[in-house]
Amino acid sequence: MQTGSRAGTNPLAMREYGIVFAFIGLCILVGALCQLKVVQGTWPQNAFLTVNNLLLILHQISVNGVLAVGMTFVIISGGIDLSVGSLLAFSGMMAASFATRSPGVTAWAGNYGAFIPIVVALAVGSASGALNGWIISRFKIQAFIATLGMLMAGRGFTMAVTNGNPISALGPEFRWFGTGKLFDAIPIPAVILGIVFLLAWIILNKTVFGRYVYAVGGNEKSARTSGINTKAILIWVYVLSGFLAGVAGVILTAKTGSAQTAAGTSYELDAIAAVVIGGASLSGGIGRLTGTFFGALIIGVMNNGLDILGVQSFYQLIIKGSLIVFAVILDPSRKLTA
């Protein structure tokens, strides 16, 4: 049955504004709760509403933000990538093995500065992503299953690199990518996030490839009828996701100063959460990078704000879980896909 004619406004635009309002609302709420503490005299100043805290939040969301950018492409293409957390750990471990000053953790370990380990991480991530994409498009396996396999295998590879040991004592050149600051103020991971976001936005919105990603996710058969090589598009989408897992692996390893076999465990869920809060549809064809960015910011502000306010971690989980579901329920354009 057809319902009445709809007003001419573009629902995607409404969705984008919606998330900005949600973000601003959340900031005002956390800011007000902090201000209350100032008024009560428990705090000398409002710790939340400062430039430094904003930069801190960007620093903290850098890893999830980078993963979520890749996840946005994957979800728009109609798939899902569960392996990004494991690929983050794997690429981070491989990078660390070329940036460590404690030799012997692996047969090849050594400190080769920053360039080589980063190239290694990006190559490892991209190659694993290519394998994901190839399996999905060649054997027509659901992305959920193929990347679930990679989630497990990737963790196994990570442990196999060093027999389960962490790699630490990383060189300062490499660590700069996690701890350095631009102009003595802006954390390098935030800068990386900004660059990744900008380039990804251009790719998704300005290039033929980006348009094909929407088409493949919106209706693969239509895309094929239009002469699009849908298999190649899918492979590249997963390569991109793997590549960004490599970037995230570099950031996290450089930030903590140690590559751990358990690093990035369940990070794929946070990335998916950011994308979904940002308004993408898990059935493909719909999603915006700006939405994802605010989705990641909302998660970041919540973690940061609740830590600052001293809220216990269980409530933090409850609030985060509710937010994801509410974001989808309140989505004004959701009815279109029903």
């Binding site: 033929v208 895309a223 239009s226």
Partner: peptide
């Protein structure tokens, strides 16, 4: 609906899809 259009996309993107190359 099944094989012709990308329902989630705009009229414009549907029209230009096969010609972007």
């Amino acid at each position: 609906k099944r094989t012709g259009l990308i329902l989630s996309a705009s009229v414009g993107s549907n029209l230009s899809l096969a010609h972007l190359r």
